[in-house]
């Protein structure tokens, strides 16, 4: 009840935070998906390189975001800026995406690959016509995990100057104000669910009916 009252009384502020959250998330998602799916494709045939890249990704993911943002801020050229916030989010998205791209591309049935080669398809065509379409559901599973994580982690970017829903959570914590925390948490999770819903629609567009399973 108190949360509802807080929400109503501060609706302007909260909508502003929500908009800021949305902008940051959308930029970060676009970059993260493009870059990390690309990297995953590049390292797909090189076990050593893939291991190295996944090691770096694990290392980054195991650093708490508050510490990572602290490091980014002290890098000249980044500082207190939206760039820092975006870079931090993109780095966190690295592991789930690259790992799933790598695993998915390498799990494509060797018989199918043989068949494609036998038909005289060049490697690039096999990648785009055979491997990627077959791997898309697993790749999207990784992307969707990353996206949901980014929505949550974006709240911590308030420490480096973003004004998003994290303000409600952060100030709720230091001011012992569960109502603020709940309002922030509810909107953040609604965001996560909403964006995931959009990805669900996207998945239906991208995955051919022949390899689509039953569940969402």
């Amino acid at each position: 009840m108190r949360s509802l009252r807080y929400f109503v009384n501060n609706i302007d502020r909260i909508l502003g935070y929500t908009a800021q959250h949305a902008v940051l998330i959308v930029i970060a998602i676009l970059i993260a998906v493009t870059v990390w799916v690309g990297v995953g494709i590049l390292v797909r045939n090189n076990r050593h390189m893939a291991r190295g890249v996944l090691g770096v990704a694990s290392l980054i993911m195991s650093v708490p975001s508050v510490a990572l943002y602290g490091i980014l801020v002290s890098i000249p050229g980044l500082g207190l800026s939206r760039q820092s916030a975006v870079v931090g989010l993109v780095l966190y998205a690295m592991l789930p995406i690259i790992r799933n791209v790598y695993v998915a591309l390498n799990e494509v049935d060797p018989a199918v690959m043989e068949a494609a080669k036998g038909m005289g398809m060049p490697a690039r065509r096999i990648l785009f016509r055979v491997q990627l379409p077959l791997a898309t559901p697993v790749i999207l599973a990784g992307v969707r995990v990353s996206v949901v994580m980014m929505v949550g982690i974006a709240t911590l970017a308030v420490f480096i100057g973003e004004r998003n829903l994290g303000v409600l959570i952060q100030q709720g914590l230091v001011r012992t104000r569960p109502d603020m925390i709940i309002v922030g948490a509810v909107i953040v999770s609604a965001f996560a669910v909403g964006i995931d819903y959009l990805f669900n629609k996207l998945e239906r567009l991208l995955v051919s009916p022949g390899i689509r399973g039953e569940a969402a």
Partner: peptide
């Protein structure tokens, strides 16, 4: 308005770099 940042590990580098 840059109120509500992290602790001095965030503010100090920004201050010395002229961002704050």
């Amino acid at each position: 308005d840059r109120t509500g940042l992290g602790e001095s590990d965030v503010i100090r580098p920004a201050l010395h770099a002229g961002q704050v």
